[in-house]
Nucleic acid binder design. Sequence first.
DNA 1: TTTCACTTTAGAATAATTATAAACTAAGAT
DNA 2: ATCTTAGTTTATAATTATTCTAAAGTGAAA
Lengths: 135, 135
Amino acid sequence: MKKIDILKKLRSSGLRPTKQRVEIAKFLFEREKTFHFTVESLNKFFTKKSASKIALATIYNTVHAFKTAGHLSEVEVRGNKTYFDTNVSNHHHFYDSDTSELIDIDVNDIIIQKIPKAPNGKKIKNVEVFINLKN
Amino acid sequence: MKKIDILKKLRSSGLRPTKQRVEIAKFLFEREKTFHFTVESLNKFFTKKSASKIALATIYNTVHAFKTAGHLSEVEVRGNKTYFDTNVSNHHHFYDSDTSELIDIDVNDIIIQKIPKAPNGKKIKNVEVFINLKN
DNA sequence: TTTCACTTTAGAATAATTATAAACTAAGAT
DNA sequence: ATCTTAGTTTATAATTATTCTAAAGTGAAA
């Protein structure tokens, strides 16, 4: 994803393209493959890449802003840290608790044949399949 | 589940049946249906039922001991609090984020037709289907 | 009953996240 | 180009969930 597209992406979702947001967006979206991260890992990256330290609060703000705008999705993983995913399409996950590693599963690689009806006046928003791995 | 069974349940899993553990176990397991709770809700119950205040640390200890013994399972729900489930059989969940309510789905009510192979030398430990609800 | 490893407890410590409020800045108006 | 201001960033404090600590308490085997 090119710089111009990053600016477009931000502006089109009502986010002013500040220096910090552009930097974070470049890091997250200027790559071939989607990936998973935590606020901690993002922060570590920007701390080490000390040329441009971004405040931790800004990283939280930005990640949440991106999530609200639909540019990131949140993945639930047992444990305390919150994982984010730059893959915002509907998909599933393997989780390896040994390495704390998340692996995407294409939505077409899982077919659900039977599913229960949603309860009382509710509707199904989405279905997430989470496959825990062991050795 | 009767008192005698509770004592048996504790002892058979190597847990000394202390006053606190028995009280918590009675509250969790002496009921018809399985249910979901958080450490916070459990603690609230024992605080109000002031006859027998149990230390918060004890509630954490006990819940984890029960989980390790296989008497409770942990459910992953987006957000910060950890949910536990007295239903330790293999099953799935509806989650209503409006009310933060979890609803069990019997394992037989979901049939998965196609599932990907586990990656590199890993095996599938279990498959959890999480259905998010909306209005 | 004595003993001791296992437990409970209050409170401190840690960790992830959110709130605060002062300083800063993108971008439309002048 | 400069001014203005609402939206942002920042350091720091606050909050929340959970774990740690170490002292006091207690089942249960001998």
